Computed example of a mutant assay.
Amino acid sequence: MRTEIEALQKENKKISLAQIAKEIGAEYTEVLKNAPNVREYPRERIEDLFETLRGWERVFLLLVTEGFVLEINDKFPKGFYGHGYLNFHDKDSSIGGHLSVGRIHSIYLVDDIMFGRRSCSIKFYSEDRKEIFSVYVPRNEKKELIPECLESFNNIV
């Protein structure tokens, strides 16, 4: 599958991983696992990842449901554990809620193309291969990826 993905990316520089999944008839998460421009992040290091995100001036958080795409552009919140959830409550962020960290099965660092532009995101998936939420490297007023956040994204190990 990796060879097929690489060939499609070489053939069309503006093809997204989602388009590749449709074209080859594969699940999107299978494409993520095999794409050369995607890294899987260890779940057991999620706190390190969240700490990195808190260092960004802001994030672009995306939550997609069957009938709604929710976009929040703000500072990544601090949280605390209680009742089986990571509870995001931070006076410096409008992002709030309760995350069942134990239900996160896979985390992918994705360098992709969206609407013809480079897009970098961190995608969180459940065991049933459904996306829980994504955090994108934010853009500035010129619609360019914010350089400091992009550098931080590239340095996540």
Rank of each mutant, 00 (worst) to 15 (best):
M1I: 04
E4K: 12
I5N: 00
N12E: 11
K13T: 03
A18T: 03
Q19S: 15
A21R: 09
A21I: 02
K22S: 13
K22M: 05
E27W: 06
E27G: 12
Y28C: 11
V31N: 06
N34A: 15
N37G: 05
E40A: 06
R43E: 09
R45V: 04
L49G: 02
E51K: 15
T52F: 12
L53Y: 08
R54W: 10
G55Y: 08
W56D: 07
W56S: 07
E57D: 14
E57T: 05
R58L: 14
L62P: 01
V64C: 02
T65I: 05
T65H: 04
E66S: 03
F68Y: 13
F68V: 08
F68N: 11
V69I: 04
I72Y: 09
D74Q: 06
P77F: 10
Y81I: 02
G84D: 10
F88R: 04
F88K: 03
D90Q: 12
D90N: 11
K91P: 11
D92E: 14
S94H: 11
S94E: 13
S94M: 10
I95G: 00
G96M: 08
L99Q: 03
R103E: 13
I104A: 07
I104W: 01
H105A: 14
V110C: 01
V110N: 00
I113G: 08
G116K: 00
R117T: 09
R118M: 10
I122G: 08
F124T: 01
S126Y: 15
E127Q: 13
E127W: 09
D128T: 03
K130W: 03
E131Y: 03
I132Q: 03
V135R: 09
P138S: 07
P138G: 07
R139F: 08
R139L: 10
E141D: 14
K143R: 10
E144D: 09
F153Q: 06
I156D: 15
